[in-house]
């Protein structure tokens, strides 16, 4: 249905409507959709993660530094953890953004809370991504007593 031009009704329109005219975008729609889609994906990712780490094989007893190092040597788990990190961080940050919008009434306060939130989210995402892809359990120049036992002797 094409957008039609509608003649103004007899009664004056609400004073609130002019500010609604600006910035007509689908941002909130995409944000809402993202919450639904990432929520479903996170269910699979998080419970898959918990199952593999805590239940499969020896279960929780097998969980140590070597176990994590082994997982991150596999591109499959790198991608899994990367997805989990990004989706969880964006999902959580967007949820907090909504709460800030709901409860922070002063414009200044709302802006600073959001700046803080986005900064924290960005730092966590960048650092986490960096760790997942540059993780080396046996760095070449580390002291021998700090290295895990499975590292080849220097």
């Amino acid at each position: 249905m094409a957008a039609t031009t509608i003649a103004a009704p007899r009664s004056p329109r609400s004073p609130r409507s002019p500010r609604r005219m600006r910035g007509r975008t689908n941002t909130e729609l995409y944000a809402w959709l993202f919450m639904r889609v990432s929520g479903v994906l996170l269910m699979v990712l998080v419970f898959g993660h918990l199952f593999v780490n805590l239940m499969v094989g020896e279960g929780i007893n097998a969980l140590d530094f070597a176990f994590v190092a082994g997982k991150w040597a596999d591109p499959f788990w790198q991608v899994w953890d990367l997805l989990m990190l990004w989706l969880a961080m964006i999902h959580g940050s967007n949820g907090l953004r909504t709460i800030i919008n709901d409860y922070a009434e002063r414009d200044q306060l709302r802006m600073w809370l959001k700046v803080g939130l986005y900064t924290a989210a960005a730092i966590t995402i960048v650092l986490g991504t960096l760790v997942i892809f540059t993780f080396d359990p046996c760095p070449a120049d580390a002291a021998a007593e700090l290295l895990p036992s499975f590292c080849p002797a220097p």
Binding site: A3, T4, R20, R24, T27, T98
Partner: peptide, 19 residues
């Protein structure tokens, strides 16, 4: 009614249905 698109656009607002 033929104004559905207009009304949906209004409710697609930042303070619309997505809240």
């Amino acid at each position: 009614d033929e104004g559905a698109e207009e009304r949906l656009e209004i409710l697609n607002d930042r303070e619309g249905v997505w809240r």
